[in-house]
């Protein structure tokens, strides 16, 4: 294994059923249902997935949902704004913990 990440592995995602079929089948059925048109459009869900892919920094997911958002007719500006949403939440999540730090610092300080 030359690297941990191989782009070709993305196409083998379904192979996880080889080791545990029942759970894999349930997961992929659930996955398909989640991404179908619903209260949110498939296009909106794809943009959310693209943002989450960046938040969890999953290379496979970024590959898959860059393609998927393009196929769903998303603009490049929409795609980058979705990434900024992920960045803003991650950044905000870090910064809002600054309040905890301040609380503790004030508790300990004269």
């Amino acid at each position: 294994m030359a690297t941990y990440y191989d782009p070709a592995d993305l196409k083998k995602f379904g192979n996880i059923a080889e080791f545990q079929k029942e759970f894999a089948d349930k997961f992929f059925a659930y996955y398909g249902a989640v991404f179908a048109e619903g209260a949110l459009t498939a296009r909106e869900k794809s943009l959310i997935a693209l943002a989450v892919a960046h938040a969890v920094q999953c290379a496979y997911c970024i590959d898959a949902y860059t393609t998927d958002t393009l196929e769903k007719g998303c603009t490049e500006a929409e795609m980058m704004e979705a990434v900024h949403v992920a960045a803003a939440i991650r950044g905000g999540s870090t910064l809002v913990h600054g309040v905890q730090m301040m609380n503790k610092a004030k508790e300990l300080s004269m």
């Binding site: 498939a42 296009r43 393009l70 196929e71 769903k72 007719g73």
Partner: peptide, 15 residues
């Protein structure tokens, strides 16, 4: 580009 079109109905709605 080198990708397939998504579902026609969704694209039509968007256009």
């Amino acid at each position: 580009g080198a990708f397939m079109p998504g579902p026609q109905a969704g694209l039509e709605r968007q256009f």
